[in-house]
């Protein structure tokens, strides 16, 4: 399990330091988590406005509002940003607290598959309503 630590004899100190965090690939994930955080934060303000317009309306009124391209596009962007952020955030927690490689990988793979399926269902639903 620890083979990966054993062959860094020829590496520069920087190359050795890279990828030594719990995730073994920190920087791109770190940036993506922040970018999706900003995206989700901005889009959730739109989402609050959208809810205030649609909450308590009938199914027909709700789907008509969601079918407006501006709303449908914002909703799609929100789903992409929020689901990516959720997966990355949960991944950070799993990597910090689950130390057994096998359980860590099973948890991550299961999580990716589940949220990819959930996000796809959401995207398909919006397209079905809007198109």
């Amino acid at each position: 399990m620890n083979m990966k630590w054993d062959n860094h004899g020829m590496k520069t100190p920087l190359a050795r330091a890279r990828g030594l965090g719990a995730s073994h690939a920190a920087v791109p994930g770190w940036i993506r988590l922040r970018v999706t955080a900003i995206g989700t934060a901005v889009l959730s303000l739109w989402f609050l406005w959208f809810l205030s317009q649609t909450i308590g309306t009938s199914h027909a009124e709700f789907t008509a509002k969601l079918a407006d391209p501006r709303n449908a596009i914002c909703m799609l962007l929100l789903i992409i940003a929020a689901f990516t952020h959720a997966v990355l955030g949960n991944r950070e927690i799993v990597e910090d607290y689950i130390h057994n490689e096998f359980f860590k990988l099973s948890k991550l793979v299961g999580m990716y598959l589940f949220f990819f399926a959930l996000a796809t269902a959401c995207i398909f639903s919006i397209l079905k309503i809007a198109l």
Binding site: M75, A82, A86, L118, A121, C122, F124, S125
Partner: peptide, 13 residues
């Protein structure tokens, strides 16, 4: 909560 959110959208569809 995202699961509730997904239920909401799928139900509307």
């Amino acid at each position: 909560g995202l699961m509730l959110f997904a239920w909401w959208l799928v139900a509307a569809a």
